[in-house]
Amino acid sequence: MTQHHKHLVSRSDCPVDQLEWFVNHTLPVEEQAKVHAHLVGCAFCQAEVQNWMELRQALQTVSVHTPAPRADLFLQIEQQLDLPHQLAPWLHLPRLLQACGLALLVCAEHFRAQARLIRRELFWMPLVIVPLISLTVYLPPWQHSPGTAALLTALCTAFGMAFLYGREVDPAREMTLVTPTSPRLVLGVRCCLVFGYNLLLNCGLVLPFLAVQGIVTPAWFLANWLAPLCCLSAIALLLSILVNTSTALVVCILLWGLRLLPGVQTFLMGGPQPFWPTPGLQQYEHFWHQGPLLFALAILTMVLAFLLLERKERFSG
């Protein structure tokens, strides 16, 4: 036990926790007077005050020897005042919202401009074709089988994607090439427009109609309708960039023709018997029902298409 602690036990009425504040003169006036009065008759507190005073004195000598800041510091401070005020993160919110609004405005302007430049056929043809295709599920050979409707709407969307890019199909291409707008941005906006429009037609016009009839379910739609549609559209876009639109169309027709073959056979033969032997057709059809794989393939193909686009534009002059 220290001397200080012994004292605390014996003299609990001493203002020991006020002595340091008595020394630096920050006690309220009444407290200061009380402590002063106490000190007259208490040797221990006098010693404590003496210790605190010596400590204060020692620290004051250190204070005297502390270096001064450099003379031109205030000039630097004044220069700092003229710099733009750094706001707290939460105060950036209005600016962030403003930037988002501006970005949205620019996006909307791009969409509006590209919607006017894209061929009109890409909008009105699906509007007629897609609902007509959905009616195939009520025709005798494909009755209550939405697979054929899914195949045809995917083909229709892929055709639209194949007509997005190319010297011969894009009247606005030259215009986009002389502006600072990136070809990727132009194509991205067009993809969103055409693919989004077709998807909207599929989801808005066809699916509710088929769902009400109990023909399709959401899970079936994702795996057997949307995934092949995305994959075939991506392939069509890639081929139209790599080669040309015609090649993209031919490849899409071939790919989907193979899938449609059993249905055509059934229609022509009037029964499930195959017209000619097709050994790998089942595996091929099975591939187009693997939803996750098709989505992954679609994403990879789209990325590849966008990567190759810049290269193609650079060397096509």
């Binding site: 220290t2 010596e54 004195q57 250190v62």
Partner: peptide
């Protein structure tokens, strides 16, 4: 250290230089 050293604190501080205190 506080318990071991018996030197009166006021004396100690009085005899130190500002470098030592720093």
């Amino acid at each position: 250290l506080v318990d071991e050293q018996a030197t009166p604190e006021a004396d100690l501080l009085r005899r130190t230089t500002h470098e030592e205190v720093s």
